[in-house]
């Protein structure tokens, strides 16, 4: 399902790296924080989404 969603995003002109799947257990708090921070930075670097409604 995840691979399919990425593929659909690419056809729709949405950068597929805006999607990320990561399995993190409840015991891995540090890892969760690290992934969330990394991913937030990544999405910020890509810039505003093309599907955001024009103001």
């Amino acid at each position: 399902m995840f691979a399919m969603t990425r593929e659909l995003a690419a056809i729709l002109g949405i950068d597929p790296s805006r999607l990320r799947l990561e399995w993190i257990s409840s015991a891995e708090g540090t890892r969760f924080a690290q992934v969330a921070t990394e991913f937030t930075e990544r999405v910020k670097a890509i810039g505003p989404s093309p599907i955001r409604k024009a103001a």
Binding site: L12, G13, I51, K53
Partner: peptide, 9 residues
């Protein structure tokens, strides 16, 4: 999504 200004591939 296609109602917006997307650039599809």
């Amino acid at each position: 999504i296609q109602t917006g200004n997307v650039r599809q591939n």
